[in-house]
Design a protein around this nucleic acid. Structure first.
Lengths: 266, 266
DNA sequence: CGGGCGTTTGAATCAAATCAATTGGAGTGG
DNA sequence: CCACTCCAATTGATTTGATTCAAACGCCCG
């Protein structure tokens, strides 16, 4: 990480929306994650800086809208200024796989750089706003602003790290633990963006979650039922699309519990 | 055995080595992949350009040597000039996972940018040469050389694409198909570097392959036996660490065959 | 209201893990 | 040199976790 990138930690942060953000966030933070407020701040700072440096094109998207599509020639990078999105990869033989989830402040489109074409579909899962940046123009701006360049590289690097975490989860965890780990990831991502964990809504269907985790929708449903039975999550609605996570660490220890029986011999 | 695969492991890349490379490569190419020679050329060109632009530090590594380690503070990016490497991620609770494989010309260390620390171990699986580049110096060089910057971004982007392919494979393929798909990836990676497919050596143990694919070593062994029985691969040694792939496309159709029974209802 | 969709839950099945036994080198030391 | 251990790999028998198949529920919407 370049030192130049470190956000100037001047406490004087003007924007109103940030204030409301922090108030919003503070509730979620007291449970866990001391670095959560820092993350929230940085995500906001980055968005603001980007908006100033490069005038992004803005676009409102709704659930189901494509942000970019596989095969389209690569021209722009995107940032989710609000909303939620998923990236979906389609193999030559028709297998379809949710390969990534994107939250506020996340970049999209990095996969297009390598081959000049986006390699997957990016689909909005909610109403939100997407900013787009011409890649070439962005690169040009980067040459005179190393902090911007580093921000970009951090984003790409985070993508790489996140992908590995996914692989780790899918390869080493049994189904129930995968679902718990997924919820931990989901909740952490929300918390880092200043959202409370006592009212989380899940725009993905069980089938989508299952696809992302490499299990069937029935398995996801059973895992969620078990998590609810053990009080790790609390459903708020009968529809079971909204829930609370009273204690994030309970999710981690649930994952541990799933792992233990296998480790009995060591 | 170690140097068979790397015709020229001398530190300096001479024009001669490029020539022998291409000759070497043409044998592997006639079966498949028209873009393979192009890829070989580009990998070589990139290495040469990097060597000229930034004077990398060079280091000879042997099987088992660490290139970087998780937790170490991030300072350098690396390129494998020859040899093979794996990246291994260790979770907080002790799960260990091979998350990536690196071949000649591949970059290492991108995961360190995001958090200022490498997030995984990079371990050499063979004798080879690693070049290291100071990140800051490299970025500085990039500001005056957009082609270099783009090369870097292409490498990061490729990493992201590759990680997704892994996830896709693990999430959507049954065990036997995963092994076949892994071999396809392995062989393609070698072919793109100008190596023949009639004498492939496999430095990874069955356990390592299994770990990478999220299956047990017994399952890998059974899958390989089946692939050999069906003639998709041909073992050369009794040790079963060296084999030939007569026809790359046979691997793909093997994957297809594994998928079909599941699709009977559609 | 009825149909479609998403979800839950149970029962049966199956693929892969686990357990277990054997082989064949590679390396060590008497 | 042989006996020894150690490790990677193979193969078979058994178990098990997850899928598949099936049924039922609630909800939204035309």
């Amino acid at each position: 990480m370049l030192n130049v990138s470190t956000p100037n930690s001047s406490p004087a942060l003007h924007a109103q929306s940030l204030v409301s953000w922090q108030q919003h966030g503070s509730a979620a933070m007291k449970a866990d994650m001391p670095d959560c407020a820092v993350a929230t701040r940085r995500i906001f700072d980055n968005l603001q800086r980007l908006q100033q440096l490069l005038q992004p094109q803005r676009r409102i998207v709704h659930a189901g809208d494509h942000i970019h599509q596989a095969g389209e020639s690569f021209r722009d990078l995107y940032i989710l200024n609000s909303g939620l999105a998923k990236t979906v990869s389609l193999s030559a033989d028709g297998r379809e796989q949710v390969v990534g989830l994107k939250f506020r402040g996340d970049w999209l489109g990095f996969d297009g750089i390598a081959h000049g074409q986006y390699q997957c579909d990016a689909i909005s899962m909610d109403t939100g706003e997407v900013w787009s940046f011409g890649y070439e123009a962005t690169m040009a701006a980067c040459t005179s602003d190393l902090a911007l360049l580093d921000m970009l590289h951090q984003a790409m690097s985070s993508d790489i790290c996140r992908d590995r975490d996914s692989l780790m989860s899918v390869c080493t965890l049994p189904a129930d633990a995968r679902v718990a780990d997924f919820l931990r990831y989901w909740a952490t991502s929300l918390a880092r963006r200043g959202q409370r964990l006592d009212h989380i809504s899940m725009p993905m269907t069980r089938a989508e979650i299952g696809n992302y985790l490499g299990v069937t929708l029935e398995t996801v449903s059973r895992a969620l039922s078990r998590l609810a039975r053990e009080g790790v999550i609390v459903f708020i609605e009968k529809h079971r699309r909204e829930f609370a996570i009273p204690d994030l660490s309970a999710l981690s220890s649930f994952v541990q519990r799933c792992l233990e029986p296998a480790a009995r011999l060591q």
